[in-house]
């Protein structure tokens, strides 16, 4: 049986499949606690990554016909992405573990031959202290690269640094 098909870069022209409304996961009438999640992506020179596709998937709240659980946002000319979604709750972990509320993130761009994967957690959640991933990261500065900060009512921000100082923790899944 052949191995999984190889990944290739999404390239700079993926916007041919961009539909801006996909960044709003509440567009089908989902009800719940609406939040805005933003961030800015920079490269190893500190320059904005202006051609990325940022995708999120969340296992909580459960996806249904009114809540896709999945969204895609292009970064703009300043490297910023923006989602509107429902605030996730705790997510079951493996065994009897519980994961803190989080979003799964897939990052795709020119120069990324495979997707980069990371997560967005939310500052102030009590479960962050015992989350299996967060608590496995010993360096508080590294851990902080996964935790969005509140920037207003229902608004959260987490910047992503692809390389160098403050580099985001990326995951092998």
């Amino acid at each position: 049986m052949p191995a999984a098909t190889a990944s290739q870069t999404i390239g700079p022209y993926w916007h041919l499949i961009e539909h801006k409304e996909w960044a709003d996961l509440t567009r089908f009438g989902a009800e719940g606690e609406r939040i805005e999640v933003t961030g800015r992506i920079t490269d190893g020179a500190g320059d904005a990554v202006v051609d990325a596709a940022v995708e999120i998937w969340q296992a909580s709240p459960p996806a249904d016909e009114r809540f896709p659980g999945y969204g895609r946002s292009a970064t703009d000319s300043d490297g910023r992405f923006r989602f509107v979604t429902l605030k996730p709750e705790a997510v079951p972990g493996n065994g009897n573990q519980t994961q803190a509320p989080h979003l799964s993130v897939v990052l795709l761009a020119r120069g990324l031959m495979t997707a980069l994967r990371t997560r967005v957690y939310f500052q102030g959640e009590a479960l962050n202290e015992t989350d299996p991933l967060l608590s496995s990261i010993e360096d508080p500065a590294e851990r902080a690269t996964l935790i969005a900060k509140p920037i207003g009512a229902g608004a959260w921000n987490l910047d992503i640094r692809l390389q160098g100082a403050g580099e985001t923790v990326f995951l092998e899944v």
Partner: peptide
């Protein structure tokens, strides 16, 4: 285009969950 866009640190292995 990979030069400034690849992480320098090794990826952190994650045990897969429902996420």
């Amino acid at each position: 285009s990979t030069h400034l866009r690849h992480p320098k640190r090794a990826l952190r292995p994650l045990a897969q969950t429902v996420s």
